[in-house]
Design a protein around this nucleic acid. Sequence first.
DNA 1: GTGCCGCGAGAGAGCGCTCTCTCACCTCTC
DNA 2: GAGAGGTGAGAGAGCGCTCTCTCGCGGCAC
Lengths: 341, 341
Amino acid sequence: MREKLSQRTPTLEDVAKAAGVSRATVSRVVNGSTTVDARMRHQVAKAIETTGYIPNAAARTLVNGRTGTVALVISGSDGSADQLFRDPFFGRITGGVLRHLRSRSMHPTLMLADSGEARQEAVDFVRRGNADGALLVSTHAGDPLPRLFVDAGVPAVLFARPAVPVPISFVDLAHAAGAALAADRLADRGCRRVVTIAGPADLPAANDRLAGFQRAMERRGVPYVEVARGNFTIGSGERAMAELLATVPDADGVFAANDLMAVGALRVLHEHGRSVPDDVALIGFDDSEPAQLARPRLTTISQPVEQMAERMAAILLDHLSGATELTSVVFDPGLIIRESA
Amino acid sequence: MREKLSQRTPTLEDVAKAAGVSRATVSRVVNGSTTVDARMRHQVAKAIETTGYIPNAAARTLVNGRTGTVALVISGSDGSADQLFRDPFFGRITGGVLRHLRSRSMHPTLMLADSGEARQEAVDFVRRGNADGALLVSTHAGDPLPRLFVDAGVPAVLFARPAVPVPISFVDLAHAAGAALAADRLADRGCRRVVTIAGPADLPAANDRLAGFQRAMERRGVPYVEVARGNFTIGSGERAMAELLATVPDADGVFAANDLMAVGALRVLHEHGRSVPDDVALIGFDDSEPAQLARPRLTTISQPVEQMAERMAAILLDHLSGATELTSVVFDPGLIIRESA
DNA sequence: GTGCCGCGAGAGAGCGCTCTCTCACCTCTC
DNA sequence: GAGAGGTGAGAGAGCGCTCTCTCGCGGCAC
């Protein structure tokens, strides 16, 4: 009776029957085992063709424990979902991850971890065996996510060094070195009255950039740099620049910890009648779209985000195939010289 | 022996043993069946707690045929992967899809269909039972993807109307109506020498915008509109604007089929000493980040991308729970008035 | 007091696959 | 020519879960 239902998707059994061999042999052919006679292999291949057979993923996973899926967990601070996805940064990471995974026939499942519940769901997703491991993109400070995954014993790799020490593999950028590139550029142009717009104080990346900039300026004979804090938005960049201009009216160089804040700074400088780069040199960070859109085009520090994401995926796959020691890879930033400095 | 391996993740069996009940009862508790005595339910809950049990997704899927996953297939023209992911448009779609899915405990798996092989892989992904259905974001003309899914009998919903007729559900924007909003705005400002930068001729959306704009201008007494084609990039917008300026030096209104081309047009207008909006009024399309970043800020046409994406997901879930009739939903665009017109 | 109904719990049969055993057969070697 | 060794194919036991079927037991009506 059941056999009559042609709607039923064909199984190994059906192919075996059609080819007049055992289920095991069909499985061998499907999985490319070499211990199958060429004639028989051909016969099975034909049966697969005619039946329209396609292996069932769940059954396979049930047996061998592998899903071919990894969770790509984007962790924003609570309730920041929408803003996150508009950020091209996220798209670049996705692109890099995808590039590495697809060549290994693996696929990323997207998850948003923007609440305690969602974070637990992300962990459980992997624990249930929906995915083999997780890629964590953590953008905010003190994110509990890495800890959760480590404690659950789930294979995971982090994008950006964890704010608090957690035994987990990660990729990151040499933020301080990037800031130093900016400092050197400003110094080379002869800037002496230099100010900087830093990111949130609880973000390791922001602090690294600030510290790296300050140290490098000191090396170049500028021991003190006035600092204002922003939160990586255009608006906060505007406010910070206005503040700095009030304190240091004769500033001749500005380093902003990201491009968006640099764009904000650019506006305020223009409003105050300062010409960029003639009166004030300005450098951003990230080499994002806005940096290219701005006029003058922003000189900025580039991150090899796609490469970092690819590497992150590669490290996870290593862990999945048994590598147990923790790995951390730090990438070098680059100086992109355009018009603003 | 096996029982001793505490590393083994606990199964229903283990919980059943710990609670002194049958496997079936534990399953009932886990799945929230009501036909379980409260005392027994409590007992089982405790056993789940102590054993750290978590249901195995593959086993479940094997039995009931549902995965809780949908494929989110981004279909670029061959080899356009990287550019795609930098486009915030993609991020907005992802955000909308995610918002709808997560409340139903479902998750999207990202797939890139930028080659024949990749397209087949996307179809097979669902056929293998890795996902219950597919969300197709097709951005280029004559995309074979929708056809492939329909032919394979795989539940799928499309973002944007298919370029060639295919029996498939989709969501789309009323492109012509959006263009008409732009036309009316220009006409209201008194523009009479109006030109437009259209998108690629093989894209339905681009043609709809062009036709809608032309018709609306005609209604407003401007029977002829000079057209140049671009491909939705800044550079192509620059070229098209230069071309139009050569043909229609006294143009006083420009409608670009997307914001990026509008940004390109803006640059060329400035280079040619035209002030926007005083000499020339300029309107874009999409309400993207660049529209807000540009100076003057771009007046533009907004698309409710997140809502469209949410609806697309909703339609797919309807199909998955049995709805069989095709659905198409067309969303209304909005006019976002800023500074450029 | 007997019979019937319904609720709650257990038994057991799969879901479709992989993989280890086992076995049949064939080719060497001495 | 007989035993050893190797190769290719089949049998069958799970993987962990759900769900139907069955059964026991208590409460109610007659």
